[in-house]
Amino acid sequence: MTMPNFSYVRPKSLKETFSHLSAGNARIHAGGTDLLGCLRDGVFTAEKVVSISQLDELKRVERLKDGSIRIGALATVAELTNHELVKEGYPALAQAALEVASPQLRNQGTIGGNLCQKPRCWYYRGEFHCTRKGGTRCFAMAGENQYHCILGGRGCYIVHPSDIAPALVAYGASVEIAGAGETRKIPVEKLFVLPEQGITKETILEPGEVLTAVLLPPAEEGFHSSYRKVRARGSWDFALAGVALALHFHEGRVAGARIVLSGAAPIPWRCPDSEKIITGQSLDDDIIARAAAAAMRQARPMQHNEYKIELFKGLIAEELAAYKRS
């Protein structure tokens, strides 16, 4: 478990960062909580570690003129749990951040690193040359797959490990991605990659690109949101199942809805069928049950994770029921 050798650089500007990243096999270090674990466990290698930790330009959390919130990629997860702008307008994000890992990791881990972290599949993290590492086999398919995905898997059955990502998708947030060329802004929903689109990638980021900020649209009246996570034990743990909800109510009826799952799929998983079922309706038991069932209609469990289907149905139903009187 010794740390392999690498060279280390701490640029003073984004421009300098891009030039260092253009060298072969350079890796970005933000808080380092995921990167160092991966390097130590040999999940991947790095010739050069490029630490962006001193780029103050990526640390700000601010409200922009149009009312949206811009969160620099280096804002720590702990900051998300207690920043007034986040707590006030985006409670699901603050809740999700509080569900992340442990106090020590929240103090160090950043929002950018959380979105770009590597999956936690124990075969991928272990000494298995699996499909995600460029091999030919997914060892979870016939192995210990109780924590693996029930939706969206093909050739690889990871679940996306982030609690923050589903909350961001529920809010319709975007990320800003900068590289040596142009800066682009894309919805968080489009940031992640399904195995069938690219089995060795988790995000659409190209080598040399840096996720510089997360942008949250202005919080509106009549908008309610929450994040709930179920895990196997009380202290820190990744989600067995989680659901982020962002619901817009108008005169007692759902005017708009986003339902996004964690622990279900290789990416934060939206449930468009369930969203459609509740839209235009007032939330009663029948509608809620139909929406919960619809979310799992496409589910394809493996040998050890069928329990997740009932878990998700119950979780979605309970969470929606909490809004009955909104």
Partner: peptide, 27 residues
């Protein structure tokens, strides 16, 4: 554990608890 899972290495950095095993000394 050496991977951020147990807390045995906890120290304060600028007054906040963090894992020394997942912190590069240069950081």
């Amino acid at each position: 554990c050496g991977r951020g899972e147990c807390g045995a290495c906890t120290v304060l950095i600028d007054g906040r608890p963090r894992y020394a095993c997942l912190t590069l000394v240069l950081e």
